[in-house]
């Protein structure tokens, strides 16, 4: 029982480190798309591990925490995808390091046609 508690605490610590990596990535990345990548990925696993560690420490909370983890895994990629699309259609360009942009080639006309429809 004691071992499980220590293991839970260590898992929580690893999770908080991943949250820290997400924050560093958010600060260091050069453009919005790379920031979304760093922010969402690392913070997803970070919060999953943080919650799982506490779930191991308190086994009677585990079901609720599992529900929370499932919700995070479903919702986090959706919000990052929506933000990426919003950034693209708001006209924010990727950094100069980006050497291939197929989406821009294909949807050059899309924002204007969208407005005409309304």
């Amino acid at each position: 029982m004691e071992h499980l508690k220590i293991a839970g605490a260590i898992i929580t610590l690893i999770g908080s480190l991943f949250v820290l990596f997400a924050a560093i990535g958010l600060l260091r990345m050069p453009d919005i798309y790379n920031r979304i990548q760093a922010g969402t990925k690392a913070s997803t696993l970070g919060s999953i591990l943080t919650l799982l560690g506490i779930g191991l420490y308190h086994p009677d909370w585990l079901l609720k925490i599992m529900l929370l983890i499932v919700f995070i895994v479903i919702s986090n990629p959706v919000s990052s995808h929506v933000l990426g699309r919003a950034a693209h259609f708001a006209g924010i360009l990727p950094s100069e390091k980006t050497h291939t942009n197929k989406l821009k080639e294909d949807t050059l006309e899309t924002p204007t046609t969208k407005e005409e429809k309304k």
């Binding site: 908080s16 997400a22 958010l26 919005i32 922010g39 913070s43 943080t50 919650l51 990052s80 933000l83």
Partner: peptide, 20 residues
């Protein structure tokens, strides 16, 4: 959008903080 992404990361990590 940068600010909104930062807000998203803040909320996701504050979920962990609330459970802590």
């Amino acid at each position: 959008v940068d600010r909104v992404v930062a807000l998203d990361v803040l909320t996701i990590s504050s979920i962990g903080l609330i459970v802590l």
